[in-house]
């Protein structure tokens, strides 16, 4: 088994115009010869709007197929099996389903068990959702939905997390809480791949490397290289 969390080779994504009535030419979003996450820590993914950050994350997670290339997580191809926690930018949760029911369906965890877990003082305050158990999941605010998705992802004890624009739309308190939580996770030997435009200072100080997509290429920089 490979020691790297992620190895992707010869990745290329070409947007194809499939609209019969449009003459927009096909466009290559990015070509990446090699991509690797070999140790725990925070990796930021940055780039201008439309550069293909979310598409890259989705290709890495197997949600979308790259035009060419191969993605291996933990030395295996096409086998995530809950090893990654994915927090999408705008999660679409099932309608008319309560938070407690969603947790039960995804984790097999009864609401009472969650309340019991959260009553422990060591449980992170930014992840407490027991007050939302009776609320309909799709009606929660963005911050609450993110907390829910993070809780769901954390409970399956993944080796790492992939987060797509986790700070957009959050209030300043929630941003700080989330940044603290992500730093805590990276200190616990998790890797975190975060696509973002605006990383809070608390997070910037702990970034191991930054991947920047520009001109169809991906460049790797040490530390946080996103302009403030």
């Amino acid at each position: 088994m490979s020691s790297s969390f992620l190895v992707a080779t010869d990745l290329k994504y070409e947007w194809r115009n499939t609209d019969l009535f449009s003459r927009e030419p096909n466009k290559t979003l990015w070509k990446i010869p090699r991509l690797e996450i070999s140790k725990p820590g925070i990796v930021l993914l940055a780039g201008r709007n439309g550069s293909g950050k979310s598409t890259l994350l989705r290709c890495l997670l197997g949600l979308m197929r790259p035009t060419t290339g191969e993605v291996c997580w933990f030395g295996e191809k096409d086998n995530l099996r809950g090893k990654i926690g994915y927090i999408p930018e705008l999660p679409v949760l099932p309608s008319r389903i309560k938070v407690g029911e969603l947790i039960e369906s995804l984790l097999g965890l009864k609401p009472q068990q969650l309340v019991q877990l959260e009553s422990d003082d060591s449980y992170p305050a930014s992840l407490r959702i027991s007050n939302l158990l009776q609320r309909q999941a799709h009606l929660l605010s963005k911050g609450q939905q993110q907390r829910l998705i993070l809780t769901l992802a954390l409970r399956s004890q993944p080796a790492g997390f992939v987060l797509d624009e986790p700070f957009s739309g959050l209030d300043p308190w929630a941003r700080t809480e989330l940044a603290e939580l992500l730093v805590t996770l990276s200190n616990r030997s998790h890797f975190l791949l975060i696509s973002t435009h605006d990383a809070p200072q608390k997070l910037r100080d702990h970034v191991r490397e930054t991947w920047i997509i520009a001109n169809e290429q991906l460049s790797v920089h040490a530390g946080c290289s996103i302009p403030e």
């Binding site: 995530l80 990654i84 994915y86 999660p91 679409v92």
Partner: peptide, 13 residues
């Protein structure tokens, strides 16, 4: 095709 429960469940394995 659109965002939906597959986005939650597929990365979860």
């Amino acid at each position: 095709s659109a965002r939906g429960i597959a986005e939650l469940y597929v990365p979860a394995g």
